[in-house]
Design a protein around this nucleic acid. Sequence first.
DNA 1: CATGAATGAGGCTTCATTCAT
DNA 2: GATGAATGAAGCCTCATTCAT
Lengths: 221, 221, 221, 221
Amino acid sequence: MTAEVRPHLRADARRNRDRIIATATQAFADDGPDVPMEEIARLAGVGVGTLYRHFPDREALVVAVVRDSLATSLARARAAADETAADETAADGRAWDALVRSLSPSRELRLTMRLTVLFSPGMAAAVRADPAITRIRREYAEALDALIRAAQTEGSLRPDVGSGDVAHLLALAAYSLSRGLGTTAEIAFDRARAIILDGLRARPTTPLPGHPLTTTDLAAE
Amino acid sequence: MTAEVRPHLRADARRNRDRIIATATQAFADDGPDVPMEEIARLAGVGVGTLYRHFPDREALVVAVVRDSLATSLARARAAADETAADETAADGRAWDALVRSLSPSRELRLTMRLTVLFSPGMAAAVRADPAITRIRREYAEALDALIRAAQTEGSLRPDVGSGDVAHLLALAAYSLSRGLGTTAEIAFDRARAIILDGLRARPTTPLPGHPLTTTDLAAE
Amino acid sequence: MTAEVRPHLRADARRNRDRIIATATQAFADDGPDVPMEEIARLAGVGVGTLYRHFPDREALVVAVVRDSLATSLARARAAADETAADETAADGRAWDALVRSLSPSRELRLTMRLTVLFSPGMAAAVRADPAITRIRREYAEALDALIRAAQTEGSLRPDVGSGDVAHLLALAAYSLSRGLGTTAEIAFDRARAIILDGLRARPTTPLPGHPLTTTDLAAE
Amino acid sequence: MTAEVRPHLRADARRNRDRIIATATQAFADDGPDVPMEEIARLAGVGVGTLYRHFPDREALVVAVVRDSLATSLARARAAADETAADETAADGRAWDALVRSLSPSRELRLTMRLTVLFSPGMAAAVRADPAITRIRREYAEALDALIRAAQTEGSLRPDVGSGDVAHLLALAAYSLSRGLGTTAEIAFDRARAIILDGLRARPTTPLPGHPLTTTDLAAE
DNA sequence: CATGAATGAGGCTTCATTCAT
DNA sequence: GATGAATGAAGCCTCATTCAT
């Protein structure tokens, strides 16, 4: 689950650290961003002291949770991309297919994106300020850029959108994840995604305002 | 700003009540749903006691804020609808135009929708339980239903979507409102909206999963 | 209900004052000594402002309630005493009979005595410091003293007790008034009183410690 | 001072818990049932947090105080009873002597009984609802019942009273404990108790109303 | 290192009292 | 005079964080 390596950490300590992150992720998803630290420690089966030994304060824990989740998601996305690239049987529209998968973020990634909305302004700033997170976001953005250029080259994606636009729509779809996990919510999500994809595939009707957004444009927000 | 009338309320008290609601709306938008009551009181220029005289607890204040915002938005939407109906110059595609406006919620409505996501489960439940809010939501839903049927009849809206789908996409767009108010955010919003609209106008390519969602489907979520 | 006369008070103001005292007495009896001022005002059908016009603070109201109750009780006790004194048919043991009546305080007096126990130390001090209340207590004590001497003279009351002892026992009996008004409570009270009376009538068996207490001894407590 | 044992509690925590109970008992006795929690914590030399760690809310603290006090009193009463039972030199009237001791509750028990009168209805209900307290009260009642039957059998206690009557008189005497600790108060208490005892020893003169009360009758009140 | 007890700042709410209408 | 709105100090409780065991 953890994608960053901290060299000098005894096996049991490492196990504790991982369990705390996993538990916190689940707790944030279940109970929202205000779960008390003691509750997280309890759920992880450790004392608060241990929690604080690994993460000096709540902010550090939150950053670790987001970092871990993004790293995992990125790793998975890359693995999938490699498989796809190696798949010689794919028809044309291969770049479009990859883009479609980008708009189908894993449940875990969606939870993380949702969290970043729910966290308080201070937490959100801390998350954005984390170098590792920044790096992962940049790599995501680069991958998305490549995908988009390929799809536009192959003619399957409308030419007047940029990676910022797609990332934005991706984020929108992800936010829709409601706390409840009903299948209705999942169906609503899938339907919305399909409609958005049709919008992305469409020939432009009326010109979009401004110019194609890059992910950098969004980050400046 | 206030759309509900409480008959027997001294002028000064009424003024305070309105100011508290306006201040709280702003404070929630700026600092999230956890702004301390005392902070809200301070920003409104009143003592905590006054705040609590008008709203017996935090829940009551939140409900009042949402109710007020929704009521205002509904009133404006209706006024706009009347004007539109009276506009004899509109080309064909009139229903579509109205639908487009539905996907352009006012900044205030967008803030409110954002709030409903941010509130804790308890608050969200209290908001949903409020009769006035329930009524407004129902009226909104009914208006949207009519709009959608008309647009589908005139052929401008794809036939495989329901009011629930549109409401969902509307909500997605609204959530996108970031805390910051930069024009970039506004442009990103407008571009996303246009793309979504293109998706709604599109001839279906691959069939959508499930069946057209009604707003009732969403509420059951 | 009010036994003190405040000369220059308009009739309606006087009526308000009386109603507030009566209401407060009832409210203290029903809900304990912490009833909010606003609640008392509401029950009395006046605004808080009016309440505060008549009684500058909570202490003043409490003192007025106790004073009024004691004054009424004293007046009634005197009226009863006069009637008794005039009753020529009474057998011997007349002083004893009067004493018995002393140990049967009216429901109102019992409530008041109970209140003085329940009030906070500060309130209790304020009550004890009130000159009118002090005077009434003194008059009560004097009446009790006379009664006791007479009863001891006629041989119906054991000689080794003083007015302080009787007042103390009287207070004990009064405290027994529970909040609930069940008849069981009343019967328990009557039985306890009868047993205490038997104790007062008894020939001493073992000598009592100390010496007969006067009411002054008690007040010094 | 503490009679209940909580097995798994660190020594220092246990010490704190005990000190908090002792301090709270004293504080309630001195300043009434409304002493602020923070004041209790301060007097106990701990932070509020510690107080709340041991007792989740004020009610829990009050219940613990009463439970502890009653348990201690019961334990002492039993120890005394055992000694008495072993005392072969006692003259006849042994049951009566035991009853006399029952009417001489320890200072601590008297404080506790006083508290139960002073507490608000809610607190009183919580105290009555506590299983440990209920058990102790029942055991007290049973012991009193046995004592009373024995005394009536040996002819030293009037036959027309029940355990409820004695418990009631016991409570009355206990309530008399004034806030101040003057020796006058103690003497007044002792004298009142002696008089009440004479009343209990007396041959009935006029019949008591109702029938002998059991402790169950009182509890139903 | 792990544990969980202790701390205290901070948020929510109540209510005695004051003051504008 | 009467009214009830406004005020803010004070009490209850929670929880992030520190520290002794």
